[in-house]
């Protein structure tokens, strides 16, 4: 062994080889697909790409995607905060079972996440006949898209908050309560400032998944152009119609969303690590 080389470090050539291999792997395997999306979208220049994004069906898809996320994200944020509060601040029987059930949607196939709603509210679903009699449509309509999205984005906020709130313990909340703060005051003034960055990060991930979800919404959508097509479903329809430039243009917009999410998440993590008001 060369003098001056630490016994627990790899020789420089090996270190360079490993770094090179990792960079090559991530570059070829993760970044190249991203590059391919933008290249394919702009294959014939900016005009056709822009046209694909501004035609009425695409605009309707963007609007629907935003609407679905605007419902799913706040609901799962509220539920996630409530779940994190009772799981992290209290001990009670069934607590670990509750935690496992909250994380369950992550290990269920997106297609099954859509299927379960069809089984409940589809034409031959449990509540199908009743819904038909009362002229309410859930599956193959916007409410179905929302339910499917709620299911797949269910754990994000709770999962980000629970470990953090558990680490923070309950001393601050006990002190606040002893000093006479109400429950809501304690949450807003004491707990929330401590968890806001983690909450934001959980909401970002939840939102990215809500806007990008494909499998679950595909099952409940019915694929009615301009009505029940979210952006990812619009991408599929265009692709199947061989409108490749248009498909990749909409896909590029979704990829941009992913990039913005990643950048924001990285910044948030760096900020909290540097001791920004956590």
């Amino acid at each position: 062994m060369a003098p001056g080389v630490s016994p627990t470090a790899e020789p420089r050539w090996l270190r360079r080889l490993l770094i090179g291999a990792a960079a090559l792997l991530l570059g070829l395997f993760l970044l190249l697909p991203l590059a391919a999306v933008f290249t394919e979208a702009l294959r014939r220049g900016w005009a056709p790409a822009w046209q694909a994004l501004s035609e009425p069906d695409a605009v309707a898809a963007v609007r629907l995607t935003l609407l679905v996320a605007a419902i799913a994200v706040p609901v799962n944020m509220a539920g996630g905060v409530a779940a994190a509060w009772c799981i992290a601040k209290f001990r009670f029987p069934g607590r670990s079972l509750l935690l496992a059930l909250i994380e369950l949607p992550f290990s269920v196939s997106p297609v099954i996440s859509g299927l379960v709603w069809v089984l409940l509210f589809g034409a031959q679903g449990w509540f199908g006949p009743w819904l038909q009699a009362h002229d309410v449509q859930i599956v193959f309509a916007v409410p179905g898209l929302m339910l499917a999205t709620l299911f797949v984005t269910f754990p994000f906020v709770a999962r980000t908050l629970i470990p953090l709130m558990q680490d923070q313990g309950r001393g601050a909340e006990e002190a606040a309560a002893t000093l006479g703060a109400s429950g809501w005051q304690t949450f807003r003034r004491v707990t929330l400032p401590d968890i806001r960055w983690a909450l934001l990060s959980g909401v970002l991930l939840c939102n990215a998944r809500a806007m990008g979800e494909f499998g679950a919404v595909s099952v409940v959508s019915g694929h009615i152009r301009g009505e029940t097509n979210t952006m990812p479903l619009h991408v599929e329809i265009l692709y199947n119609e061989y409108q490749f430039v248009a498909a990749f243009a909409v896909a590029a917009l979704l990829a941009l969303l992913a990039l913005v999410t990643l950048a924001a998440k990285t910044l948030l993590e760096r900020g909290t690590r540097r001791g920004l008001p956590a």
Partner: peptide
């Protein structure tokens, strides 16, 4: 970049 498959919509 490692998180890209998490963030990128599956259809994309």
């Amino acid at each position: 970049a490692v998180d890209l498959p998490f963030a990128l919509p599956t259809a994309v």
